[in-house]
């Protein structure tokens, strides 16, 4: 007889039930927590608290941690392939997710060399521009490719030093909730990634209007959802990140970054 797992939300490095006590059964069998507005707020607070520490890690350290996440994910390949429905397609999706983590792990300490600049201003000043993480990023995972789709958006955000509140694919949340177990054993500090499952219709609005969320990635949203999100996002001038392409690219990391320019006089 199996020892079954109770699926939980992942908030502040802990596996918790929804404070609402609600559940839904997307596949008709397994109970999945139906996260609430309060769960999102807890997750945003955890993320905000974790932000300075994660952004302040050395780039090399973030790379090592992302690489470890790839190791942990690959180590559980069989479990994920099964969660994704078995077969070649599931295997491909798992491989893609692992590859994405490895690829972005190698970008942490190169991004500022590729996107940063030293600016030749017309005066006696040293002036340079560096990318910095924008802060708390909300990610709406796409419904298709519930693992690779999420990792494709999660990895570039984390790579640059952002912290994340992710909404798992509503129709297939198990891969995302299990990914939390991978992240929890990868030395990613508590609160850096938070994963909430539940109903998009109920939760999107709260994420889009939350005043302490700096950016929202709408890769998994319909045009109508994007419009509503963009309207709410204006409340605190959120960056709305719309990436439909499945490629991996440093431009996708840069989409989660701010450019900071620093001036200092040169003189004796």
């Amino acid at each position: 007889m199996d020892v079954r797992k109770t699926y939980k939300l992942f908030v502040n490095g802990e596996f918790v039930r929804s404070e609402s006590g609600r559940a839904y059964r997307p596949d008709g069998k397994v109970n999945v927590p139906r996260g609430s507005r309060k769960d999102l707020r807890d997750a945003v607070r955890a993320a905000r608290t974790a932000f300075p520490g994660w952004a302040g890690r050395t780039a090399m350290n973030r790379g090592q941690i992302l690489y470890r996440a790839a190791e942990m994910l690959d180590g559980r390949a069989a479990q994920f392939v099964e969660l994704l429905g078995s077969g070649a397609r599931a295997r491909r999706e798992l491989d893609q997710a692992v590859e994405t983590l490895v690829w972005y792990a190698g970008w942490t300490d190169k991004l500022s060399q590729v996107t940063g600049t030293v600016n030749p201003v017309a005066g006696p000043y040293f002036n340079f521009t560096i990318p910095e993480p924008t802060g708390v990023v909300a990610i709406i995972a796409p419904e298709e490719a519930p693992l690779a789709g999420l990792v494709r958006r999660l990895a570039p955000a984390l790579c640059g030093g952002n912290v994340v509140v992710a909404l798992a694919a509503e129709s297939a949340p198990l891969a995302a909730l299990t990914l939390a177990e991978v992240l929890a054993t990868s030395d990613i500090p508590a609160g850096v990634v938070n994963i909430i499952s539940g109903q998009r219709k109920e939760l999107l609005g709260w994420l889009a209007s939350h005043m302490d969320v700096n950016a929202i990635d709408v890769a998994g949203c319909t045009p109508d959802e994007v419009k509503a999100i963009e309207e709410s996002a204006a409340g605190n001038v959120k960056r709305v990140i719309k990436v439909t392409s499945k490629e991996q690219s440093p431009y996708l990391i840069a989409a989660f970054m701010e450019m900071k320019t620093i001036w200092h006089p040169i003189g004796v």
Binding site: N119, P120, A122, T261
Partner: peptide, 8 residues
């Protein structure tokens, strides 16, 4: 301070 080569 401002300069065309300096992002703002």
């Amino acid at each position: 301070r401002f300069d065309p080569s300096s992002p703002f």
